[in-house]
Design a protein around this nucleic acid. Structure first.
Length: 662
DNA sequence: CTAGGGTTAG
């Protein structure tokens, strides 16, 4: 028997892939229980032979890695022997889907040759369209299937719901939801219900998803997680947490969803705390979990945590050398925590890099004002076959703008479409307006906005408004602000910026007009807040004017002492950094309550002399604080790193890496 | 089969 089959296989002139199969066919025979008894009928023999061939084809198909191999397999084997085997063709379409082979072309041609497709084959096609698109084709195929009198399977509905999410068409989803019951009778099917929840929440109908969830007789972790994610995406962390607490068997995905949810909702402390509980609960960690945690850590800029997370990753066998995702996330985390050197070390040790790794590194260099490194990395990237994308260009352009390299920025901006096929988006225009405006080319920046190829968004006008602040141009500021108040009426930052511009120009009437506007629109100013790490890695938070920290008294005294030293060196408070119409004494008093000053002094008081003090601030650093920290780095000999909402400032011996251009 | 994810921004 073995010999008969072997001869048969050789006769088929099999490809390399199937020769590999050949060596395994003995094992396969055992799996399929193909030992041949003496008195086997011819029919039975043929049936078994067919079964073996099917198994062989599945084996070959499973090992196809591209369209060419798929076509070869089809040409050699399918057409000759098994074009009518729905079993094999279903596999064929599934493999095509997995390999991203456009369903509309080759797989569809194969499908259309089949005279009597079975429900599995129909479903595979629908599923293919629902994953690769065009999504509406799923529905077209489904209708054909119904007209052919084929009863849909539960998988069929799942695929269709996926297509509905892709189409963002809840109406269609509802129609199909009704059919689940009266055509399929699948209303108790866990799998169908889970995809149904997902469809509703992806279409933005969270409450409908919730209703399905509430009415389910049986739920699994997937049902819970779908809903948890929906709540985190709609920024309702309370609801998400409530669900999460009620989930009896929390698996890694559920934990990750929650951790990532906190990170994405600007609650990094909660994210890190939850990750710690996740570790305590003995749940595994994979790269997806790490991406969320690292993003949280990057937001906080917490150095101690960063090192701990790195350890966790290494212990989980996720090393940046081997894993691109982990590597790229690490680069981002380290550079946002202030250690650009560590970030670059990670970048260098990565064996595989992709556009994320390069972009993260370029953006890292840009944030730290290292324009030369950013540029040379960008050109180095050009030597690889990794294509830059829109984010890469944002990195390159912000690098230019942080150092005022106008000419090079202009050139890259005007050639990015032609040379790299990345058409400038509104974000890129914003970078460009920032670059031009910051360098003092206000008119050119305004011209650029007026001639944009895409609609300007808040970022573009905001960049112009920022430039108007630096170059004290209240007239142009009003134009920019008018657009901003229409585009982002609830963004408090724009109102504050405009009122600051008026204040700088001494237009106090306009200042109070804007203040009133803020009040009538019910907006709240977000207070300045600075984070600094104590010796033990604990992060301390300081708000502007807040004296509730236990060490407040000491901080106040030490700050007074520091300022006195600086005054001897010629420091004078920059009173214009205070944008309230107050007496000079009041202004000076207010300056001393800025959160970054409190954080600085706390750092000086509590950390060991050789270490770097890293401060993370939520708003832009003010000029007075910049000068004070500069001076502090000189008189104390300490290295001080400040991250504000724009970029990094490295203070060393009385000099800042930004060159006072920020 | 169905659930979690990456770099950016004024």
């Amino acid at each position: 028997m073995v010999r008969v089959l072997s001869r048969h296989l050789i006769k088929l002139n099999l490809s390399n892939l199937s020769r590999h199969y050949h060596s395994n066919h003995l094992q396969l025979q055992q799996q399929h229980n193909l030992s041949l008894p003496g008195s086997l009928s011819l029919f039975e023999y043929q049936r078994q032979q067919l079964q073996l061939l099917e198994a062989q084809l599945i084996y070959v198909l499973d090992r196809c890695n591209n369209l060419a191999q798929l076509k070869q397999t089809h040409a050699q084997l399918l057409r000759k022997y098994l074009d009518q085997s729905s079993f094999v063709l279903t596999k064929f379409i599934r493999v095509s889907t997995k390999l991203n082979v456009s369903i509309g072309l080759y797989p569809r041609l194969v499908f259309d040759q089949v005279r009597y497709p079975n429900p599995f084959l129909w479903t595979a096609l629908i599923r293919g369209y629902s994953i690769l698109g065009p999504f509406d084709e799923s529905v077209v195929v489904y209708n054909c299937m119904r007209r052919g009198g084929i009863r849909p399977m539960s998988f069929t509905f799942s695929a269709l719901f996926k297509a509905c999410s892709g189409l963002f068409n809840v109406g269609l989803g509802r129609q199909l939801h009704a059919q689940v019951v009266w055509i399929g009778g699948y209303h108790d099917d866990l799998y169908v219900s889970n995809t149904l929840i997902d469809m509703y929440v992806k279409c933005g109908f969270l409450e409908c998803g919730r209703r399905v969830f509430d009415e389910m007789g049986e739920r699994d972790a997937i049902s819970w997680t779908s809903l948890i994610v929906a709540y985190t995406k709609s920024r309702d962390m309370e609801a998400a947490a409530e669900l999460f607490d009620g989930l009896p068997d929390k698996d890694m995905v559920a934990w990750t969803a929650m951790v990532t949810g906190y990170a994405q909702n600007a609650k990094p402390k909660e994210a890190l705390k939850l990750f710690e509980s996740m570790q305590d609960a003995g749940v595994n960690t994979d790269e997806v979990t790490l991406v969320g945690v690292m993003s949280a850590c990057a937001q906080l800029g917490a150095g101690k945590y960063a090192r701990w997370i790195r350890d966790v990753a290494e212990k989980a066998g996720l090393s940046p050398a081997r894993n691109v995702v982990v590597g790229s996330a690490l680069i981002d985390m380290y550079s946002k925590c202030g250690s650009l050197e560590e970030a670059y070390r990670v970048f260098q040790m990565m064996e595989v890099r992709n556009v994320y790794s390069y972009s993260a590194m370029i953006v890292g260099f840009a944030m730290h004002g290292r324009v030369n490194e950013a540029m040379s990395l960008f050109y180095e990237m050009g030597q690889t076959d990794i294509k830059p994308n829109k984010v890469t260009f944002i990195g390159v352009l912000t690098a230019c703008s942080h150092t005022g390299i106008v000419q090079q920025g202009r050139q890259i901006f005007s050639n990015m479409d032609k040379d790299y096929g990345v058409a400038p988006s509104a974000d890129h225009y914003a970078c460009m307006v920032d670059l031009l405006g910051r360098a003092g080319h206000l008119e050119e920046a305004y011209e650029l906005v007026k001639t944009m190829s895409v609609e300007p968004h808040g970022g573009v006008w905001g960049a112009l408004l920022g430039a108007c602040r630096i170059y004290k141009n209240p007239e142009m500021a009003e134009v920019a602000a008018k657009h901003l108040f229409e585009l982002d009426p609830n963004d408090i930052g724009n109102y504050v910026l405009l009122s600051n511009i008026y204040a700088l120009a001494g237009k106090w009437d306009d200042v109070s007009r804007i203040r009133k506007l803020i009040r009538t629109r019910g907006l709240k100013k977000n207070p300045g807040c600075s984070l600094v790490e104590a010796k033990d890695g604990v992060i301390h938070e300081f708000f502007a004017g807040d004296m509730t920290h236990p060490k407040s008294k000491e901080i106040k005294e030490a700050l007074e002492e520091l300022l006195q030293t600086l005054r001897l060196e010629g420091y004078k408070p920059i009173l214009s950094s205070v944008v309230h119409n107050l007496s000079d004494e009041e202004k000076e008093r207010l300056l001393k309550t800025h959160s970054e000053k409190l954080a600085l002094v706390f750092g000086l008081l509590t950390t060991s002399p050789g270490s770097v003090i890293t401060i993370v601030k939520n708003l832009r650093i003010c000029e007075d604080c910049h000068i004070v920290i500069c001076g502090a780095s000189k008189v104390t000999g300490r290295e001080i790193v400040v991250r504000d909402n724009m970029r990094f400032h490295h203070f060393h011996d009385g000099v800042c890496s930004c060159g006072d251009f920020w």
